[in-house]
Nucleic acid binder design. Structure first.
Lengths: 342, 342
DNA sequence: CTGAAAGCGCTAACAC
DNA sequence: GTGTTAGCGCTTTCAG
């Protein structure tokens, strides 16, 4: 391995001068700079960021913890994060927890040990335990999408799930639905709770009594397609099944759709379906699902900007910032008035 | 920041003993170990991987360079890579080059400087220049999906694009099409060239003369939706337009679909459409597009396994390995016999 | 079983 | 403009 020493020797200067050239210091004679550059070129020297980080105590790296790399919602966030990070010369380490608290724990530790300068964090567990090692290292954290129980002092960027769920439910109610089923992921996750809250709010406002059997919020289920599929079947098996189903996120809605089709039911003729979060690659080609759409890319951008600001001047802004982004209702073809029971 | 020294002081032992405890060495008296563990706990000590990497000359990190994080094909690869890497205690740095050679260059340099232990690489430029800094550092590389001009000594895992394109084209020919347009990304990219090759092979076999005006392989265009859209319009504007269009990848096929619809044409009645690579989230809900599907997850897994094997015993296996995965033709609803010209 | 010394590749702080 | 010294947090000898 060729080090700064080798370059110095070859160029006939001290390592310090080489360091200056690498880091673009002004105080180097042009002829010296050229000598050094030539040596670097000849030797094929590449500076070692690890050594540099050890001294500087910064790695120019941020961790991005998301819960499902398969979900376009998170992928889009990742893109926003990455684009923004690059523009500020940061590299991002992507950590996919797969909605698995154990993986989440492991990744938090890896990031703490790796001495990333900061992390953007979508919790899979809803718990603060995994954050412990990050806190210990005093690593700046920006929460994204999901809040964490008992954590109130961290910046957070998220969509307004209560409002989004309210809009979706209200749309269904306006269409005439009164029995609306909702399926959401783990109740440990804030977005799951918020969406149920928005759902209830809309029902209450319309004086529709809340039927808990229509609310499928499972202890251990994830926000996955399979869960959506399974929970929808449970809903359809009810004695008095719903006339509309609210998918707690895009993946669950797809699962719901599959379950509904499997039963030979038509959407929206037999049953309506709405989804929290869009799937652009789907809707573009097949504009079918009525959804509430969150500005995922923007979320990634804002979270990264907040984080980097924290990294670069850790002390100045003390107060926590909460950015709430407004979702947008997009009405397509999966919703219609319920069949009138004659 | 609490370091190994602080722990040593607190536990009343030397740093070496702490190091032994951290790394699970056997040669530590049980009572000493407990003292050290207690000190670690009390101080909230987290080992510094940066310092460790500097000595060990390995980071337990691999870089994954992909060209489009928006494309489910690459996302699925990423998942395969990540799952495999984790299971071997490696962390992955995801680099999204966005099909942009400049970003590619930048990322290659970042990875070289970061001293990742290896990289999995889908080239955006098709050139070997960006790899230079990686080569200089002697970092093991496994190519994925795309070959690189003039690079013949690197392991590679890729799908058989020639075969896939051949199958897709043959399917169209079997249906009765004779004027088949093809749109692919930059001809600098091996998969673009291979797909055109497979296309030509099928035509030749059927004794259909090749009409270069039906082959849209642009110098600077990417494999993007917008390019698919634009190139399809060019195809439709031809004096004697094609009766079927071959989308060079999933994104281009979507662009093609949008362009076709915009012209008020019906698929497959007016024109057939096929795609290289599936979009699962789309096809699951709307099984419409006839595609050739590659085992993306498997590609990620295999590439990572190869890479880690290289990392862990750099010398033993000298010869390059090439893994060619077979794509699968999935016939759905976007293809039909051409309208007979009366 | 435990510790002291040396040093990984680099930069900060100060000389000259 | 350039070089010297010291040291980042850790592990590797090698003693004891």
């Amino acid at each position: 391995m060729v080090t700064i020493k080798d370059v110095a020797k070859r160029a006939g200067v001290s390592v310090m001068t080489v360091s200056r050239v690498i880091n673009g210091s002004k105080n180097v004679k042009e002829s010296t700079r050229e000598k050094v550059l030539k040596a670097i070129e000849e030797l094929g020297y590449v500076p070692n960021s690890v050594a540099r980080s050890l001294i500087l105590k910064k790695t120019l790296t941020i961790g991005l913890v998301i819960s499902d790399i398969t979900n376009p919602f998170f992928t889009t966030i990742a893109r926003g994060v990455e684009d923004t990070a690059i523009s500020k010369h940061f590299t991002v380490i992507l950590c996919n927890t797969d909605e698995n608290p154990e993986k989440e724990m492991m990744y938090a530790e890896v990031l703490a040990k790796s001495k990333v300068d900061g992390v953007i964090y979508a919790s899979a567990s809803g718990k603060k335990t995994p954050l412990k090692s990050l806190f210990l290292k005093n690593i700046p954290i920006v929460l994204i999408d999901r809040t964490i129980e008992g954590v109130n002092d961290l910046d957070i960027v998220r969509g307004d799930s209560v409002l989004g769920a309210y809009l979706l439910t209200k749309h269904l109610i306006d269409l005439g639905h009164r029995r609306i089923g909702i399926i959401v992921g783990s109740h440990f996750i804030s977005t799951a709770r918020d969406r149920v809250e928005g759902y209830k709010k809309a029902l209450n406002e319309a004086n529709i009594p809340i039927d808990e059997s229509l609310i499928k919020i499972n202890k251990n289920s994830k926000f996955s397609k399979d869960d959506g599929y399974r929970l929808t079947k449970e809903l359809l098996d009810l004695e008095n099944p719903p006339t509309a189903i609210f998918g707690g996120n895009n993946l669950m809605a797809v699962g719901a759709l599959l379950a509904i089709r499997e039963r030979g039911l038509e959407i929206p003729d037999d049953i309506s379906l709405v989804s929290f979060d869009d799937i652009e690659s789907l809707s573009e080609v097949y504009p079918f699902l009525t959804v509430v759409k969150q500005p995922a890319y923007t979320m990634g951008v804002i979270a990264t900007e907040l984080l980097i600001r924290r990294i670069e001047d850790k002390d100045r802004i003390k107060e926590k910032r909460e950015i709430l982004l407004t979702p947008e209702l997009i009405i397509r073809k999966s919703t219609a008035p319920p069949k009138r029971k004659i």
